[in-house]
């Protein structure tokens, strides 16, 4: 995805098996299927909280969105990996899907 690592570089070797892409956090919260990766174009602290609630491991910010410092701190405290990619949501999801991260019930 040509992504930059914002934080959590020491956790990049973890295995993940499912993902979800959405800008609506309640849609993410509606489908608990052990999604480990959240792709989103939304940038506020509730994205981090949603990932915490869902026991996710990684958030990918699409369209070059960069989280604020307080979000990064919140993510570090939760052990979350944050990535930022210049790709749009559709392309980023497509690349991960084609590489085998086939997700679960997932809304975009």
């Amino acid at each position: 995805m040509n992504a930059n690592v914002i934080c959590g570089a020491d956790s990049l070797d973890k295995d993940v098996y499912s993902a979800c892409g959405s800008d609506m956090m309640s849609d993410v919260l509606a489908f608990v299927k052990d999604q480990a990766v959240l792709l989103t174009g939304l940038v506020n602290s509730q994205v981090i909280r949603t990932a915490q609630m869902m026991d996710m491991q990684c958030i990918v910010f699409v369209r070059n969105k960069i989280p604020a410092e307080d979000m990064i701190t919140l993510a570090k405290n939760s052990g979350l990996v944050l990535l930022a990619t210049p790709l749009r949501m559709y392309e980023a999801c497509g690349i991960l899907y084609s590489k085998g991260l086939t997700g679960s019930k997932c809304n975009e």
């Binding site: 609506m24 309640s26 849609d27 919260l29 509606a30 939304l42 994205v47």
Partner: peptide, 18 residues
């Protein structure tokens, strides 16, 4: 509120679901 990622009309249904 929608621009903040909420207001999709899933809050109360999610609370009941879980």
């Amino acid at each position: 509120v929608r621009s903040l990622g909420f207001g999709a009309g899933m809050g109360l249904p999610n609370m009941k679901r879980y």
